[in-house]
Design a protein around this nucleic acid. Structure first.
Lengths: 152, 152
DNA sequence: AAAGATGTAACAAAAGATGTTACATCAAGA
DNA sequence: TCTTGATGTAACATCTTTTGTTACATCTTT
């Protein structure tokens, strides 16, 4: 990885979709404009979120919508939707098997435990961040602003 | 980030240095051979570990050694030695400031909290992994192997 | 002075992430 | 039915990051 920009864009999209519900039709072009990204990038992200069962994206017509209550959508679900290899892809080990040196022969297994703990910690932190909580934070921020609802 | 290969190599080097103490002089060439890497890469890593106060690397002569007890060296210290920006560099947010859309204006702040929690979780998991514990795991693995001590 | 080591800058190569174009496919309405 | 506007996806291009390499200055001991 990193927790790539894709993941941040995905959250952006989900918030947008939630906020626009009933007000405006959400298309990939609209999301591209809002995120400062590209329609194709957006379509790929939406496609992944769709496969993960988080949203529906009607073909032909457009108009993405959430399939679940925001409290049932976690950052971990979003992340794994986008990164098929999961948190493991965050971590790199140098290839050094087949060498004489006993350290080289065992380093991979030595690192297994600590790295696994890191992955678990990340997973847990991601599971505690729900779309619901992020929407609440968003509303807290947005209601202080003028004319913020007129944009959709 | 990621928890790059550099970090894994650094742990490899520290274990090697510890094990070779009193048996063989540890040079960048030797470590490069053991890690399957390059002497310059090793020198850069050792240089970072040195600046972090984890090892000494005598100039001219060579022969790296630990400056601290392995129980006082954590994976977090190793990681931050190599990644000056710390865990923050693990995370990416798309740039979308200055747009009309209220989601774009606030997404960065919305993500701040959950991402911060992830960083903390990683940090804590890294702090719990000491070089001591990794050495113990290494010895557990290595003592089952034949002739493993003859390599240094 | 010579040998063998580290420190570091500069460059090269490889890998990964992101952006773009092009086109097939689909759905709704005129 | 034809047009319009949307998604799905492959293919390619570009940019960035990571990793590897060469070269050379500097240091320490003999």
């Amino acid at each position: 990885m990193q927790i790539s920009i894709k993941c941040s864009i995905a959250v952006h999209c989900l918030i947008f979709i939630h906020e626009a519900k009933g007000i405006a039709k959400v298309t990939s072009n609209r999301l591209a404009e809002s995120t400062g990204s590209n329609p194709v990038v957006i379509r790929n992200i939406l496609s992944a979120l769709k496969k993960a069962g988080l949203i529906t994206v009607p073909r032909g017509t457009g108009g993405a919508e959430l399939c679940k209550d925001p409290s049932q959508i976690t950052l971990y679900q979003i992340y794994t939707a986008l990164e098929p290899n999961g948190v493991t892809s965050m971590i790199g080990i140098h290839p050094c098997q087949g060498r004489q040196c006993p350290v080289a022969q065992n380093i991979r297994k030595v690192l297994e435990h600590p790295y696994h703990n890191i992955e678990d910690a990340v997973k847990e932190a991601m599971e505690q961040a729900t779309l619901q909580s992020m929407l609440e934070e968003y509303h807290r921020l947005a209601e202080d602003q003028i004319g913020s609802k007129s944009v959709f």
